[in-house]
Every structure is written in C-alpha cells, then in structure tokens.
C-alpha cells in the first residue's frame, strides 16, 4: 500500500505535477534529515544535505525504476551525498575497534543513570547509539527503526550484504555493551 501510494505521487510528478512531490518531502523528511545528521553531525549541514537529497531525487525521478522501495532509493541518495561531503572534508569513519569510550562520555552516562534510572531509557538508548561510528548509526537506524532489509541497506550503502550483516551484528553487540555499562542489570529487565 505504501509503495502504491508513493508510486501514485511519483507518477504524478513525472506527468508534470510538481506539487505532488511535496507529499514525498513531507513523508520522508524526518528520516532523511536524521540519517544526514547522524553522518554530518551539524544540524545546519544535515538540513542542507536533506534539501539537496530531495532536489536530486526530483531531478532524477525519471531514473527511479521502482525495483526497490522509493525510501531505499531516497536513502541511498542521502547516504552517498553525505559520504561525498565527508570525503571532501577528509573525515573518515572509525571502526568499532578503533573507538574508545572516553572517560568524559562514561561520566556523562553515569550522570544520566543517576538522574533518571528506569524512567528514561530513551536517553540511554540514544546516548549509546551516538557512541557508535556514524555509518553504523545509519545502518542500525535503517535496519531496526526503518525496517529496511539487509539487501536494501546494501543498496543504500553500497556495502555487500554480508558486510552489512557483520556491521549490524557488531553494532548491536556494542550497543548492548554500552547500555549494560549505563544501566547495569536494569536494561536486561527491560528486554
């Protein structure tokens, strides 16, 4: 149904109804912006990237063949745009093994823990997610939040399916580890 709805508006845009594109902008702007923010970090950069993503999607809408979901196609534009931007800035992602949780971050987590305890697990969850490498944050968000399949994430990121699987598995393990550190046994009572 979702795909059909999207297709209806895509066809309308192709026939020249420019205004029909606003439906797609409204529907996908949050996820596109969130993905851009996870990779680029700065809200103003993310907003610009999100705008550019929709402009590119509009310009290339005739090339969308409908073989994948429109969202998959749109997120791949976002992902590739962000990667190109980061390459321009010569910023490279660190792997999970390279990344060390700083003492400052740990202290922040403990502060959160003392402040909120069980009441606000979302904060811990988002904090743990933010500690992951940027590209892993995107993969985890797409897989667990946006329910994109491994194949679709492979299309978006350009990584092989097996690589996506490994990265998501490792990211999940790392998030568990971080949450465990933050909430000790309490997180497991939630699961």
């Amino acid at each position: 149904m979702n795909k059909t709805e999207d297709q209806y508006y895509i066809d309308a845009v192709r026939k020249g109804n420019v205004q029909a594109f606003s439906y797609l902008v409204e529907k996908y702007q949050k996820l596109v912006y969130t993905l851009a923010l996870k990779l680029l970090k700065k809200p103003e950069d993310a907003e610009e990237m999100a705008q550019d993503t929709f402009i590119k999607a509009y310009q290339k809408i005739d090339t969308y063949e409908g073989k994948s979901k429109f969202s998959t196609w749109l997120y791949s534009i976002t992902y590739n745009g962000c990667i190109s931007e980061l390459r321009k800035r010569r910023i490279e992602f660190k792997s999970l093994d390279d990344r060390q949780i700083s003492d400052q971050d740990e202290q922040k987590m403990h502060d959160y823990y003392r402040e909120t305890k069980k009441e606000d697990q979302e904060k811990y969850l988002n904090l743990a997610l933010e500690r992951l490498p940027e590209d892993d944050q995107v993969l985890v968000t797409l897989y667990y939040y946006e329910n994109q399949s491994m194949d679709e994430i492979s299309l978006i990121s350009g990584l092989t399916v097996s690589n996506v699987k490994i990265k998501i598995h490792r990211a999940r393990k790392k998030m568990h580890e971080l949450l465990h550190e933050m909430l000790h046994e309490e997180i497991y009572s939630l699961l």
């Binding site: 420019v18 205004q19 594109f21 606003s22 902008v25 409204e26 702007q29 949050k30 996820l31 912006y33 969130t34 923010l37 809200p43 993310a46 907003e47 999100a50 705008q51 929709f54 402009i55 509009y58 697990q121 979302e122 969850l125 988002n126 997610l129 985890v140 968000t141 897989y143 667990y144 939040y145 999940r172 998030m175 568990h176 939630l190 699961l191």
Partner: peptide, 26 residues
C-alpha cells in the same frame, strides 16, 4: 528484542518550514 527497543530512538526533525524551502527550490 533489540529491534523493539530501537523503536524508541530519537528521530530528528528538520526546521518547520523545510517542505516550503524544498518545494520553492523545486
């Protein structure tokens, strides 16, 4: 279980006039 928990992550929103900005560019 992890997937269910992940539904609680924060999804950020762009500025309130985002659609207007994009549509005027389009």
């Amino acid at each position: 279980q992890f997937g269910e928990m992940m539904k609680g992550i924060r999804i950020d929103a762009p500025s309130s006039d985002f659609t207007v900005k994009v549509m005027s560019r389009i």
